[in-house]
Simulated assay, not measured.
Amino acid sequence: MEERILKEGIYTGIQLSKYIINKCTNDRQPISNLQLQKILFNLQKYFIINYDKKLITDDFEAWPYGPVIREVYAEYCSYGSMTINEKYNHISINSSIRSKIDPIISRLRKRQPWDLVEDTHRPGGAWDTIYKNGAGNKKIIPVCLIKEKEN
Rank of each mutant, 00 (worst) to 15 (best):
T25W: 00
G125R: 07
I130Q: 03
R107H: 12
Y46V: 05
P67L: 13
S92V: 15
C144F: 15
D128P: 00
Y11G: 11
Y65E: 06
G80R: 04
A126H: 08
P113H: 03
L145N: 10
P113S: 04
D52R: 14
G125M: 07
I84W: 06
K139C: 09
L116F: 09
I21D: 00
P30L: 07
D58W: 06
Q29Y: 09
S17T: 02
I49P: 03
W127G: 08
Q44N: 06
S99I: 15
G136Q: 03
I130P: 04
A62N: 06
E2K: 15
E8F: 14
R107V: 13
G9E: 09
Q37Y: 03
I14V: 11
C144Y: 15
I91H: 02
Y131T: 13
Y88G: 00
G124M: 04
I101R: 05
F60C: 05
S95I: 15
K23Y: 13
E148M: 08
P123C: 06
Y19R: 01
T57N: 09
H121D: 10
E86I: 01
D115H: 09
E71F: 09
D27Q: 02
N85I: 00
K54Y: 11
I105W: 01
W127F: 05
N50K: 11
S17K: 01
D119S: 12
G125D: 07
T25G: 00
C24D: 01
T83R: 07
I10F: 04
Y11M: 08
K132H: 03
N151L: 14
E8S: 12
P113N: 03
R107D: 14
A62S: 09
L36N: 07
G134P: 00
S99Q: 15
S99Y: 14
Y73E: 02
Y19E: 01
L6Y: 08
E3A: 14
N151W: 08
K7A: 11
